[in-house]
């Protein structure tokens, strides 16, 4: 009886195995996608990036740079130091200071602003010619308009995980790190990693700097922009983005970035350099600041910039910020969940 039952099931499976394999495969994929979609909190990823690209003449202060700036500077926190300023974080993942990006930065600045300033977060990586495929700004600018927002959200849940993630999961030697990002309408991407991997980014940076050093032409283009902006009355501040001590050491050693020379040229071009404690803030992966450290850093940087302005004899003029309270409330709603993820 049992063997005939088994034979029945085997025949049933074998007859339908193509459909069965496809259905099972799609079910597995759908379950993983649902699981992944729960990691997306705050503003939807697509809305977050596309909103940034839509910004035109809407800010008094524009914060520019790569993912380090994107994750390290909270405009709302900076506004609490300098009330009334419309501050936008225009940082993009893997973004370098290419001419088109610098032009876009300038466009975000309100030409009517009484206190216009551009704050450039400088990391050696942002001064290298990296492939455009990984540059979030380039990718978004070149993306066809027909790409539907929901579609991008779906694709996010289908994104690949690095091989080491699966190896850790299978071998249990390392627990896979769970990244969490809370995306704010003002451009800040608050981040955390649980558990933290203070040396996670080092390997990738070491590999990149082996073949891809700081590009002198890119520095020259950036400084040319600084000159032009300062001449037109825009204050330009620069700072080196903080990271883990090992990362700063690695960058100094391998990237070909000469900070002293850069600062000298930057100030000669009319910019004001904000000397920050580069290793004084907590990084969750060696490169990016954890969200609570980012809040602290934002406050510190805003105070430094305000002090620089006072010394310059300028005053801050209050202009109402176009902040969307509904989206902000929605994002803030997730904060408790976010806090529990951080150790």
């Amino acid at each position: 009886m049992d063997s005939s039952k088994n034979a029945f099931w085997l025949t049933w499976i074998l007859k339908r195995r193509t459909a069965l394999a496809l259905t099972l495969g799609l079910v597995f994929i759908a379950v993983t996608m649902i699981h992944e979609s729960r990691k997306l909190i705050g503003l939807p990823n697509e809305v977050f990036w596309n909103n940034k690209l839509q910004w035109r003449a809407c800010a008094d202060w524009v914060l520019a740079g790569d993912s380090r700036v994107n994750g390290a500077l909270a405009p709302s926190e900076m506004s609490s130091v300098s009330p009334g300023l419309r501050i936008r974080n225009f940082g993009f993942r893997a973004c370098g200071y290419r001419p088109d990006y610098l032009e876009a930065v300038e466009n975000v600045l309100d030409p009517e602003s009484d206190n216009p300033a551009i704050i450039l977060g400088v990391s050696p990586r942002s001064l290298t010619q990296r492939p455009t495929s990984r540059n979030e700004f380039q990718k978004r600018v070149n993306m066809p308009r027909v790409v539907c927002r929901n579609w991008e959200q779906i694709m996010w849940t289908l994104k690949r995980r690095p091989l080491e993630h699966w190896y850790a999961l299978i071998c249990h030697s390392r627990r896979p790190a769970r990244p969490l990002f809370l995306l704010y309408p003002d451009g800040w991407a608050a981040g955390a990693l649980n558990p933290e991997r203070p040396e996670h980014a080092l390997k990738q940076y070491r590999r990149e700097f082996t073949h891809n050093n700081v590009d002198p032409d890119m520095i020259a283009d950036t400084l040319e922009c600084v000159k032009r902006w300062t001449r037109s009355g825009v204050r330009v501040y620069g700072f080196r983005t903080p990271a883990a001590p090992a990362m700063i050491e690695l960058e100094n050693e391998l990237s070909g970035f000469d900070e002293t020379a850069f600062v000298e040229s930057f100030t000669q071009a009319g910019g004001v350099w904000l000397a920050v404690n580069q290793t004084g803030y907590h990084s969750y992966d060696g490169s990016h600041l954890r969200w609570d450290a980012a809040l602290q850093f934002s406050r510190d940087l805003a105070e430094a910039a305000a002090e620089a302005q006072k010394n310059d004899g300028c005053s801050v003029v209050a202009v109402r910020c176009g902040f969307n309270p509904i989206l902000a409330a929605r994002a803030l709603h997730h904060l408790p969940e976010f806090q529990t993820s951080a150790p």
Binding site: L10, L24, L26, I29
Partner: peptide, 19 residues
């Protein structure tokens, strides 16, 4: 033989997320 569809489904899943 009965496990073959499961293995194929697993590979399909892995091709998406472990790529």
């Amino acid at each position: 033989r009965a496990l073959e569809p499961l293995v194929t489904a697993g590979l399909l899943w892995a091709s998406v997320f472990m790529r």
